[in-house]
């Protein structure tokens, strides 16, 4: 079963995503900020994919990715953001995050996002 960590401070968005991905047969955990995400991973919790919002209350999504990558190198990322003018910074690209892993809010259809999650897990397993 694919283990997904959703990091988003908007409960409505996070829970809707969780419902959809659970219907797809995945195990989904939701946290409201980057600090809770890193705390869980530090505690030893393992995830396959993290769906990360960029604008978060404390540490922002970009920094969170850098921190999490140190803690759990196998973790893959989908960036799901309401910011409209975002381009991938060079250092995140160097970590392996690609443009295709960027999704813009609002999403009328979460299907492609779920497909990507599966593809990422497929990649890392290979």
């Amino acid at each position: 079963m694919v283990r997904v960590l959703v990091v988003d401070d908007e409960p409505l968005v996070a829970q809707a995503l969780q419902a959809f991905l659970e219907d797809e047969g995945m195990a989904v955990t939701v946290v409201g900020d980057a600090e809770q995400a890193t705390a869980r991973v530090e505690r030893g919790e393992v995830y396959d994919v993290c769906v990360m919002d960029l604008r978060l209350p404390g540490m922002n999504g970009g920094s969170a990715i850098r921190v999490l990558h140190e803690l759990l190198p196998s973790l893959q990322y989908v960036i799901y953001t309401g910011s409209t003018a975002y381009t991938l910074p060079a250092d995140l690209a160097a970590l392996g995050v690609q443009d295709v892993q960027l999704f813009s809010k609002p999403l009328a259809d979460m299907g492609p996002l779920a497909d990507l999650v599966r593809a990422l897990v497929g990649l890392s397993v290979r």
Partner: peptide, 21 residues
Amino acid sequence: AHEINNPLSGMLQGCQNMFRR
């Protein structure tokens, strides 16, 4: 835009889930 996109996303995603479920 960011502020609006979040609730809009909640609405659209909620709709999709409603149809599915």
